[in-house]
Amino acid sequence: MIEFDAVRKQYPDGTVAVERFDLVVPSHRVVALVGSSGSGKTTLLRMVNRMVEPSSGSVRIDDVDVRSMDPVRLRRSIGYVLQAGGLLPHRTVADNVATVPLLEGRSRRQARADALGLLERVGLDPAIADRYPAQLSGGQQQRVGVARALAADPNILLMDEPFGAVDPIVRDQLQTELRALQADIGKTIVFVTHDIDEAFALADEVVVLRAGAEIAQRGTPAEILAAPADDFVASFVGAGTARRSLRIREIDGRALVVDGDGRPTGVLER
């Protein structure tokens, strides 16, 4: 369980990235922070592993204030996935995945064996283990990033726009895989995105943020879609647009789902 308790962040240059933020992320749940650029999402995420220290308030993991933990130990115990992977360019894929176990003093053989297993787990051919990051596609790099985050078997995963740098088709694929993976491993995941569809696709709970990390609305994807709290949330989720206003049209005895412009998007199974 991660708790944000009245956290505020003002950067040294005076920017207030987070005004005052409270949130509880229950264990084994996936929570998405969505909001436009500069709304403070990354800042919030980085407070969890102490890459950013709150100006006031506190962040607790399982009731322990993160400030009382050694930052390096804390970071090694939390998986962190960044946009475009953030892999070390001078280490092979296997070494990248095994980074934290190796730092923790695991034997090379063991770490490598584990890394190969993890690669398979995130849908990669272990044959690429000895390549370097620059030799992989964007989607593959991203998968390696996920594998690296899982390597120390952390309870918590933080993901900052994990699929922001890959094309829409690969993104879809990665989202599907992550959902399957989560069904299996049940981590506590906080992820940041400005793609509301990604949030709906992956999260149990979605938190929509305004500037200064002010919570505009939080709830399950269904709750937010069904009843946007205000105009800001409504426009953010695209409520009322053709894409979100689906209707049913009967054709040849089958119920076709069409959007506001009448373009078919699927078939209703009854």
Partner: peptide, 23 residues
């Protein structure tokens, strides 16, 4: 050295010395 790479190393738990020596 790419700042993003350094930041990533720090985020996954490299100490400052390890960031310097290994990255």
């Amino acid at each position: 050295v790419d700042r993003a790479t350094v930041g990533a190393a720090r985020a996954i738990g490299f100490t400052e010395w390890q960031v310097l020596a290994c990255v």
